[in-house]
Each structure stands twice: as C-alpha cells, then as structure tokens.
C-alpha cells in the first residue's frame, strides 16, 4: 500500500510535467500539422537556462553556490522560472520565424526534416563549451527539500513511510495552474478563438481576417514558455543536469510527444490526459514489472492505442477528401 501511494505521488508529479510538454507539441501540431521535433530541446533549454540564470542570480545576491546547504528565498526560484520562460519564449519565436515560416506552404515532410535539423542544432550548439558545455552539472537547490506531509502505513517492523515532498507539490501546482491558464486562453479568449480557427482551416481563417502569422507566432511562444516551465520543474525534481544532447532529454521529449498522440494530437485536454496516462504506465510498470524497461512500456502503449484508436483517446479520425 505504501509503495502504491508513493508511486502514485511520483506518477502525478511526472504526469503533470509530461502534460506541460505535451501541450506544446499538441498546440503546434494543431495549428501547423507537424511534429515540432525541436520542442524537447526547448525543454532542455529551459532546464539549462534555469541553471545558468540561478547561478547568475545567486552570485548577484552574494550566495555561494558551492556547498550551499539552505536554499535561498523563494523569490529566487520564481525569478529564475520567469527569466527562463521569457528566454525560451524568445527562442521559440525566433525558430518559428527563421526556420518554419518560410516553409508554411511546403510539404509536411520537409517541415518535419527542418524540425529535426533545428533539434540537432539546438542540442549541439548547447553542447559547445562556450554555451552550456558537454558535461553534466548540478542544479543549485532553489526549493527547500521539505516534506509537506508524511503518512505511515502498517505498524511495527513493517511500517513504511510515504512522503509528499514540497517539490512534487510545487510541480503539480505550477503545472496545473499553467494548464488551467492555457485552457482558459484557448477556450475563453479571442486569441483562443483565433488559434482554434487557424487550427481548423488556415486559409479560411486568413480570409476571415485572422492574422495567421501572428497566431502561429503566439502559439510557438506559448508552447516554448510551457516547455521552459517544464524544464525548470524537471531540474527542481532531478537536480543532476545532463548535457544538452543526452538521450534522457530526447526520451523525455518523446514521451511527452507520445502523451500528446495518445490523448489525440491537436487536442489540448487530450495532451493533459495523455501526460498522466503515460506517467502512470511508466511509473507503475517500472515499479511492478521491471524498471529496466520503463521506456518500452510507453512505446508499446503508444502502438497499442494507435492501432485501436488511430486518432488517440480524445481525438477524431479524419478522412482524406478525395
């Protein structure tokens, strides 16, 4: 029972991270109909820029990062989060502007290949010594390692403690509020109506006077900002920061993408649902079957769901018009 609860808590925290990243994939796919392969690299950028910004900020306020035992005031974490979100937003905007916009009318495969190119570019520029470097780093601890609550299951010798950490709660709260904000934005604002219109039919939307390019830009910026937040939260949970081209990042991005596909790509609620489904499959599979194959479960899940429901859980299958 204790194991189950602990796995559940981890799955919820990880699930909200996947959901946050999946939102970026799904929004871009919804509007431009291509997989933004570089999205996972924006997450990496979010994580690494959080690292850079926090070192810079801590130095600025005179805190020694080496051998730091107590975390700084909470506003440092907030500022770092905001800074890296802003930075990634700008990068996302630039990428769309320079690499994707000229290909607006090109076949989808070309855009996909470009996205792979952008992804490789971000990874390997990040690996340069002048940028982030090719070795792993340790993220300074910005949040206190406090236990918010703990329960004890069983009695005597078999007693097991289940811990709800502050970090897990922070991840869940931050991610959910961002997702709710996104939900509000997409379904209850004028901007959201424009986004959905472009997603439904770009040409018609343009004829209706919707500035398509601006809507696409905003979508990219939003996706990138969410990705940055996910990157930040990820390094809060796992402070050992892998180098930008490490497989673990690609897998993180892939799983988030799988989450978006499982939920029904292009569907905002589906992405959130998919994120949690993936996290549950992965965490419970890892715990109850074998931790070695945790990546395999996710892909097996993907293939199974796509074979049963090609449009994903909340998606609709579209027919090609002849």
């Amino acid at each position: 029972m204790s194991d189950f609860t602990q796995t559940l808590i981890t799955a919820i925290a990880i699930g909200s991270l996947y959901a946050l990243i999946a939102l970026g994939y799904t929004m871009v796919y919804g509007i431009l109909k291509f997989i933004n392969f570089a999205h996972s690299d924006i997450v990496v950028l979010g994580a690494w820029s959080s690292y850079t910004f926090s070192n810079w900020l801590l130095k600025l306020i005179g805190v020694e990062t080496k051998g730091m035992t107590t975390p700084p005031a909470i506003w440092v974490a907030v500022v770092v989060l905001v800074l890296s979100m802003a930075f990634c937003g700008v990068v996302g905007f630039t990428i769309e502007r320079l690499a994707y916009r000229p290909l607006r009318r090109a076949p989808r495969l070309n855009v996909l290949i470009t996205a792979i190119g952008v992804s490789l570019l971000l990874q390997n520029v990040g690996q340069l010594d002048q940028v982030f470097g090719a070795s792993p780093q340790k993220m300074p601890q910005l949040l206190p390692a406090a236990e918010l609550a703990s329960f004890t299951f069983g009695e005597g010798e078999s007693a097991r403690k289940v811990v709800i950490g502050l970090v897990d709660v922070m991840i869940f709260v931050t991610a959910s509020s961002l997702m709710l904000l996104m939900q509000y934005l997409v379904f209850h604002t004028k901007q959201g109506v424009a986004m959905r219109a472009v997603s439904y039919n770009t040409d018609t939307a343009a004829l209706m006077g919707i500035p398509v390019d601006r809507v696409v830009s905003i979508t990219f910026v939003l996706g990138s900002v969410l990705a940055a937040a996910a990157g930040f939260l990820y390094v809060m949970k796992y402070p050992s920061l892998n180098q930008p081209a490490h497989t673990i990042w690609v897998l993180l991005g892939l799983k988030a993408f799988v989450a978006a596909v499982i939920g029904g790509i292009g569907n905002v609620r589906g992405a959130v649902l998919g994120g949690f489904v993936i996290a549950f499959v992965e965490q419970f599979g890892a715990f109850y079957i074998s931790t070695n194959y945790r990546d395999v479960y996710v892909f097996v899940m993907l293939i199974l769901i796509l074979l049963v429901r090609p449009g994903g859980l909340l998606g609709v299958t579209t027919r090609e018009k002849v």
Binding site: I35, L112, V258, V261, D295, F299, V300, L306
Partner: peptide, 25 residues
C-alpha cells in the same frame, strides 16, 4: 505494419520508438 494505419509523422515516431526499444532491450 503500423505504417498501414499511421500517417507520415506518426510513423516517424513509431520507428524512432522502435530504435529506442531495441537499445533498451
């Protein structure tokens, strides 16, 4: 086989996933 059901970019993900599964196994 999935390529019969999946359009281009979905298929890309399945093949990418295949490579990763082989690696993990």
């Amino acid at each position: 086989l999935p390529s019969l059901r999946l359009r281009g970019d979905y298929l890309a993900i399945v093949t990418l996933g295949f490579g990763e599964i082989i690696r993990v196994i």
